[in-house]
Write a protein that binds this DNA or RNA. Structure first.
Lengths: 219, 219
DNA sequence: TCAATTTAGTGACATTGCTCACAAAAAAAA
DNA sequence: TTTTTTTTGTGAGCAATGTCACTAAATTGA
């Protein structure tokens, strides 16, 4: 799978420095992954910083019993702050990362991070923006579990998924949603039924049809 | 309030570079704050990065209704990742920062951050470790609200406070604890009473006496 | 086609935590 | 010392969520 600078530049619009782009190509490894591929799990050591080129990666926190909680998506042009912190400290991962769809990423060896942050201002900025974005998203995730009820969390989750997949047909099961919100299937089934009664969504097997104006309705 | 390099070096054991120490002294402002002083509130713009020299700072998240949630403490030698991200992006603060005790801090203007991270490796490392530590603590806070019941959260909170103040006598009210755990006073009163019944703590007005082996008991 | 599996719907009940209401004790203020 | 304020204790009821049990529909696969 050959990729040239032009193509990479196009996929990473906020990186324009030709030297950095070349370095990314030289030292990074392009990977194409199927949906649902587990990239990292808690406890595993991470040696690569994954930069999403196409598709998306779902970041989840897990507790000891394997219960999960959705934190945020990594979209094209983004990377995981956790991989930066864990790598540099050579600590095992604290999160689970799974491809949400067919995903192409550029895996950069962590050693290059320090080198590049001295050499390329754009890399330094990229890392800074990454920390900033991720911190903010962690706070959003925290707000949800700390201050919101499950109905609101579910509605926001639906919106997030819709935006992510750019569709108002969500192909998923109630069980899957329950897992990502850290609750039980029954709770999700019941809450979805309530939304259906309000005519905000329609339910099918493995699919949820969401009304176009759903986002305005819930806010 | 004059401080010389030797004194600063002693207060920041992980910074040894004389150039950096001098720069910190030249451009940073030493501040002495009373306990309970609000350093930053959500919405407020931050122009300084506060490095704790003595005492500690409590970092809280707030929701729209003013409900609070304790995130973590900043201890001597530490700084706030949020101040770094918010400042550089010139965004308003997303958290509330309050001195937990009498606190001395070094307020560094944000402009120096970029300059120093090119110039001093130790500053770059300091920032990297800050991000790492804060991310980890955010995850711990998230675990608590997402996966733990209030009784366990309360017990962990007691341990955190004990370690923070290096004592097993906590001088606080039930209301205050409730605020920091984002719940109501009645809930905390009842749970504390349960702990007292188990003889793990003793309750007084404005004080909780904690058994020395409390931490082993709860884990 | 028919059995097995997956997914969803739902009632009943337990648990956790929140809210309201009020009492009592302790401390502070007058 | 009285009065007022702050802090704590506690019952009762309720709302949100979690759990168990079972049914039914849709899909898969033998």
């Amino acid at each position: 799978m050959a990729m040239d600078i032009e193509e990479l530049k196009q996929k990473l619009p906020n990186i324009t420095d030709p030297g950095l782009l070349q370095a990314l190509l030289n030292h990074g490894k392009i990977m194409d992954l199927q949906p649902g591929k587990v990239i990292t799990e808690p406890g595993q050591f991470v040696k690569m910083v994954p930069i999403v080129l196409e598709g998306s990666i779902k970041i989840l926190r897990m507790d000891e019993d394997g219960k999960e909680l959705f934190l945020y998506f990594l979209e094209p042009g983004e990377t995981c702050a956790m991989s930066l912190t864990c790598c540099t400290a050579s600590r095992p991962s604290e999160i689970k990362a799974v491809t949400e769809e067919r995903t192409q990423l550029l895996a950069v060896p962590i050693e290059k991070h320090e080198e590049w942050s001295d050499q390329y201002k754009q890399w330094k900025d990229f890392v800074a923006i990454t920390y900033q974005t991720r911190f903010h998203e962690m706070l959003v995730a925290l707000d949800a579990v700390a201050f919101k009820r499950m109905d609101e969390r579910l509605m926001r989750f639906i919106v997030t998924k819709m935006k992510q997949h750019k569709t108002n047909e969500l192909h998923t099961t109630h069980q899957e949603i329950a897992n990502e919100l850290g609750t039980s299937r029954e709770v999700i089934s019941r809450l979805l039924k309530q939304l259906e009664k309000k005519k905000w969504i329609e339910l099918g097997r493995n699919v949820i049809y969401v009304r176009d104006d759903f986002e305005e309705l819930i806010s």
